[in-house]
Design a binder for these strands. Structure first.
Length: 548
DNA sequence: ACCGTCGGCGCC
DNA sequence: AAAGGGCGCCGACGGT
């Protein structure tokens, strides 16, 4: 059974709908928390406009739900999917469901207010009608099974995002401070002042570049100073500076490293984002067109390795850290049905398998060549390796090449479960276009082709990861359904192809086994019985920094 | 004082 | 060692 929740003025309407879509009755509820708690015993699938609007309040009151449909996230998928292109939903004019992903920010009210302001006032979203449209679109599509799985996985991701924010990532401010102090020196008494080791590098730099007023944080200023000592560079990017031979370069690179740590994840970050021993970023499921999650605030998806040692399990608890090894190339092999490449990965190290097949000479070459195939490299070593890779694995390489050509023609490409790329911008030029305009138009086309090439792989990998996480969540709950979320093993972090579970130490081995099983289950969900494996690198640790 | 863009760089 | 895809955040900077 499904239960659709909708806010109607100050009240909440609950509409029961059978699995076949039949209306079973409507009631108004005043105590949403109590209602959901009571109804959840029958394991319905909750249907609501936006998980980030409903679920945090429930979690705060101690109520979890097993399943949901997040209509806003599902709407976006159906709106653009090539599998539902002729549906009533996809052909309708943009309406109130066509909004950018919301975040789980603390200021929900403000955010919603702005959204409502920006919207046509008469277009009040009707979740029941929207659900009907979505079900019709899916059942009429060529692949209702796949799309249904995608919508369920996307919605499960929304639940997980809210739960991860609720639980928070264990973060020890004292350990973080110790790491910072070790690298930067003691925290300066005044915010904005440079810590000792950063100041040392700056002093050194100013002498070596004979620029006593130099501010290396200003690219223009730095470029000028480098020019004055005869260093000709067009940018101040580290990898360009590394090529230069000058005594000022080592301290400059060191300065940049330290300055980056300070500004991105220094004491100010710690004060802003870590409260009560937990880091709670705003996860934004579906925040990236490919289906990857985004985050808003705190830069959760860019936590540098340097500070992962501050992520420490509670006393008596452990972290289970797992990442899918070489996920994207394996996804490519599986979705292309490239038996040779699937087999190359079967023994554990896909790149070693590619070397063994004779396509390239070294593991490093295999890695660079695969990355190039998925990103569209044309030059350098990666570009040179492409022909022999294509000869060895014609189906896999052919698949990304086809995706690139489709994008160049302005066509849409689609992931394994049915998420499609945004409509391509047709290459806009005509007969009268000048040579330079033509060149730019061609480059735009190629660039879009690189995007669609990567889209099918990155997007399908994101689907695998969603299925993996949804399975992990289900399995962890099943270990002891009576326990509250944060009293039992629970997900605390997700990073594209990597998860962290916070678990009582005694259960860590069991959790690791479930996480491994979940990876196999995700593979079956996407690729059926194709014998493709998704091996994990898995570690049971006290702190995230020790995971690898 | 505030806002948007850019250069740069962290993660996958 | 870097290029090729996807992001978010920082300080600097140029505009109001």
């Amino acid at each position: 059974m499904l239960i659709v929740l909708a806010r109607v003025g100050a009240r909440v309407m609950a509409a029961r709908v059978s699995d076949q879509g039949g209306a079973l009755g409507i009631e108004y509820v005043d105590d949403v928390v109590g209602f959901v708690r009571a109804e959840e015993r029958a394991h319905p699938r909750w249907v609501w406009d936006d998980t980030s609007r409903w679920y945090p309040e429930l979690l705060a009151a101690g109520v979890r739900v097993e399943r949901c449909f997040d209509l806003r996230l599902c709407h976006t998928i159906i709106r653009f999917s090539a599998l539902t292109a002729s549906s009533a939903l996809a052909t309708a004019a943009p309406g109130p469901w066509d909004v950018a992903p919301a975040t789980l920010s603390a200021d929900r009210d403000d955010a919603l207010f702005e959204l409502d302001e920006a919207r046509e006032p008469e277009a009040e979203p009707d979740p029941l009608a929207e659900l009907t449209l979505q079900r019709a679109a899916v059942s009429a599509s060529a692949e209702p099974g796949r799309l249904g799985r995608l919508l369920a996985a996307e919605s499960a991701g929304a639940l997980i995002a809210a739960e991860m924010r609720f639980a928070g990532l264990p973060w020890r401010a004292d350990a973080h401070d110790a790491i910072l102090t070790g690298i930067l020196g003691a925290r300066p008494p005044v915010d904005g002042a440079r810590p000792p080791k950063l100041q040392e590098k700056l002093d050194e730099l100013r002498v070596l570049l004979e620029a006593p007023e130099l501010n290396p944080d200003s690219p223009a200023d730095l470029l000028k100073a480098l020019g004055n000592v005869g260093l000709q560079v067009t940018s101040t990017r580290s990898w360009e500076l590394k090529r230069l031979k000058h005594p000022a370069i080592p301290p400059l690179l060191e300065y940049k490293k330290l300055a980056r740590l300070l500004s991105a994840n220094g004491w100010h970050w710690l004060d802003t984002w870590v409260q009560g021993g937990r880091f709670r970023p705003d996860y934004v499921p579906g925040g990236v067109v490919t289906g990857r999650w985004a985050t808003s605030g705190g830069g959760a998806l860019q936590l540098p390795r340097q500070i992962r040692g501050a992520v420490i399990a509670d006393e008596g608890w452990k972290l289970v850290v797992a990442d899918a090894a070489q996920l994207e190339p394996r996804i490519l092999a599986a979705m292309a049905g490239d038996r040779g490449m699937v087999e190359a990965g079967a023994a554990g190290d896909l790149y070693a398998g590619i070397v063994a097949s004779g396509a390239v000479r070294t593991r490093e070459q295999a890695k660079v060549a695969m990355l190039g195939a998925m990103y569209g490299a044309t030059t350098g070593e990666s570009g040179r390796l492409m022909p022999s890779l294509a000869r060895a694995y014609p189906r896999a390489i052919g698949m990304v090449e086809d995706a690139a050509r489709a994008g160049e023609r302005g066509e849409v490409v689609t992931t394994r479960l049915g998420r499609s790329s945004p409509p391509g911008r047709a290459a806009g030029y005509d007969e009268s276009a000048s040579e330079s305009e033509l060149t730019r138009a061609r480059e735009r086309g190629r660039s879009w082709g690189r995007f669609t090439r990567n889209f099918i792989v990155q997007g399908t990998a994101a689907e695998w990861a969603l299925c993996w996480m949804a399975s992990i969540r289900r399995r962890l709950t099943a270990l002891d359904p009576e326990l509250w979320l944060t009293d039992a093993p629970h997900l605390v972090f997700f990073l594209h192809d990597e998860i962290v579970v916070h678990t009582p130490a005694a259960l860590a081995e069991r959790v690791a086994a479930e996480v491994t099983e979940a990876a196999a289950e995700a593979g079956r969900l996407l690729f059926g019985e194709l014998p493709v494996t998704f091996p994990l690198t898995i570690a049971i640790v006290d702190d995230y920094g020790s995971a690898k």
